[in-house]
Design a protein around this nucleic acid. Structure first.
Lengths: 379, 379
DNA sequence: GTGAAAGCGCTAACAT
DNA sequence: ATGTTAGCGCTTTCAC
């Protein structure tokens, strides 16, 4: 992995090349010139301070330095020497070379977080939670945004360029995980099928309950013709929404549900909603959208058709993004504890790395009623 | 402890998934005993295949393996042996140990991208562009979201746990860069003060021109009382917007500008806009917002005050996020070529790492007129 | 209590 | 054309 690069470059040029498997275009020519009279940037620039330098400065051996700085000295090194070492390290600005440590230890204290997209704050919050827990354990987190979230991920083990101790994958489409699976690394999946055999542990949101709460809210308001704007993404989290919603609606006599698929964008949401709302006759009075982005699109569709929200049609979202309160009216939506998901996921992974077996977790979600829902129109 | 957990749940048959053998460079299933039977090679369970294993399997030396897999064999190793080596590597599922390589080379082929926040797609796009270029050079990119975007960044060199060959920082607040600066690594700054001495190169958007285009658009429509909802963030990009806007407005006789600061959220944008619009007497007829999020807040404020957009008040944004077309009416805003910024930044860094001096770059931006702007009301 | 020594897996001089 | 060798900087027995 990835470690502290010390000297600028040893001598002679680096070698351009990608990973062994991929004969990628190498890096462009570099110039030689250890002897060039001119601008040879070739000096061991920051001749990085090594633990040996510290040892020398402190008048002890490298081993002692390692012991002290690794906090394993109690009972092996005298308090006084320990302090000397720490002082020397501080003075010299010593930073351990992570590559060397990783090589020696066989572990990197780095975890990869794979997310389908960078563009929504849901994943930003997942990251935040995961990072906090990781930091507590002395681990770092590297983000890997799977391109477009839906296509098969490019090889993170090559691309992230970090060697890893474990992987956390969130809300990935079913087919986007092939490579993550193959890594042979401890894997925790978030917001994903708990029965997936690839994951050693899962952390989930009670998505089904969120869908039920949404349905319950609308049904209680009196809605009987409900349309589901369903994300056209093949992942567990959306399948669950569809199923739970269908069941909830089916449980109420006289209630009917129709489903319209949509890509995850405002524009696609708008188009899907227009299709649904344009159906003559029994137009739905409520639109349940798989996320807030689709819901925003649905609102635009309604407005274009001259329908008022919530008077003529109610709209609900999912996620409670900033977008949910940016539109008018504000969206009734399901708030997901994203940070908690990230944190729980990282805890599970840490447990796993300690050789123990974490429990699968399910976190509760909460419907946030706002201005986009109301009783259906009279007629 | 910290037993490097092999696999908690052996990936048996993927329950819901088919096609296990994607034939990709992914890790082929571990072969049984490539290195001979009998003598129990006592391989430590997680024992990765090393280049030595490959050498043994191919009947050559480790050096040859390195040469072949490093694509520097032409002229030094026979085509036949090269093929043998490649085959052995493939069969064993060999993946080079990056820690070892980094240690040896003193370079990591990893770059850190520091961004102020994960929550907006602007940075997601910057990442995308940067990643693409990096991949072409055989480099990986690690993302470091500086907490909250404004506070001083925590130490990325520790936290990211990746040692780095270089750093790219985008749109950072002035005081958030201390640690990045101190890293002693080649640094490219994006959307930042080109005069900052810390950066070896900068890539900028022509933010000033964007502000001028916005001002020109509004002034041409006839607006004379303009308010600036200014991001309360101390970074170059926002200073430039303020200055250019002020100059443009000052250039038109009879035009006046007032400024209202706001934090970067819908809610704060709304409050700031309410303050501005509530001013009795000479209410501004146009609100120029430092980004689309603020603009969304401004729209909400207008609506709450019973003002119609764009009839009573015009609103403009900056960035052209998805949000810009999610609201009603859609926002007139300045589109920023985010991917191009990321790509240019990475190219500059690659140039830098090759020991040459990249040129500073300025990329053009474009005003996108939409429904949120119109001539000012008559009276 | 402290130091000496042995590598982790890789690459690049230097033999052969 | 291929093998041998010497480390990169670190942690960890094992001697003293």
């Amino acid at each position: 992995m990835v470690a502290s690069a010390g000297r600028a470059r040893p001598a002679g040029g680096p070698a351009g090349k990608g990973s062994p498997g991929s004969g990628r275009a190498g890096e462009p020519a570099r110039r030689e010139g250890p002897d060039g009279a001119g601008a040879a940037p070739d000096r061991p620039v920051a001749g990085r301070v090594t633990s040996r330098d510290v040892a020398r400065a402190a008048g002890v051996s490298q081993a002692t330095v390692s012991l002290v700085l690794g906090d394993k000295w109690p009972g092996r090194v005298s308090e006084r020497t320990a302090e000397t070492v720490r002082a020397a390290a501080r003075d010299l600005g010593y930073r351990p070379n992570l590559a060397a440590r990783s090589l020696r230890l066989g572990r990197t204290r780095t975890v990869l977080l794979v997310v389908p997209a960078l563009t929504t704050e849901f994943f930003a919050r997942v990251y935040t939670g995961a990072e906090r827990v990781a930091a507590d354990h002395g681990f770092g987190v590297v983000l890997y945004p799977s391109p477009e979230g839906v296509g098969p991920a490019r090889d993170p083990f090559d691309s992230a360029r970090a060697s890893l101790d474990g992987v956390i994958a969130s809300s990935m489409a079913a087919d986007a995980l092939t490579l993550v699976r193959g890594g042979g690394l401890p894997l925790v999946m978030l917001d994903s099928d708990p029965d997936d055999a690839a994951a050693a542990a899962t952390v989930n949101l009670d998505i089904a309950d969120g869908a039920r709460q949404t349905a319950g809210h609308l049904l209680a308001l009196g809605h009987r013709r409900v349309a589901h704007l369903a994300a056209a993404v093949d992942s567990w989290t959306f399948h669950v929404r569809a199923r739970a919603l269908a069941e909830a609606v089916a449980g109420v006599p006289g209630a009917a549900l129709c489903t319209e698929p949509a890509g995850l964008s405002v524009e696609e949401g708008r188009r899907a909603a227009e299709r649904v709302l344009a159906r003559p006759g029994r137009r739905p009075t409520a639109l349940v959208c798989d996320d807030d982005i689709l819901a925003a699109g649905a609102c635009k569709a309604a407005r274009r058709l001259g329908l008022r929200i919530p008077d003529d049609v109610s709209v609900t979202g999912f996620d409670d993004l900033a977008l949910a309160t940016a539109v008018e009216p504000e969206l009734t939506t399901v708030r997901l504890p994203a940070e908690a998901v990230g944190a729980a996921g990282m805890r599970a992974l840490m447990t796993l790395l300690e050789g123990e077996t974490p429990q699968d977790t399910v976190l509760p979600v909460e419907l946030v009623p706002r201005g986009s829902t109301a009783p259906p129109p009279r007629n």
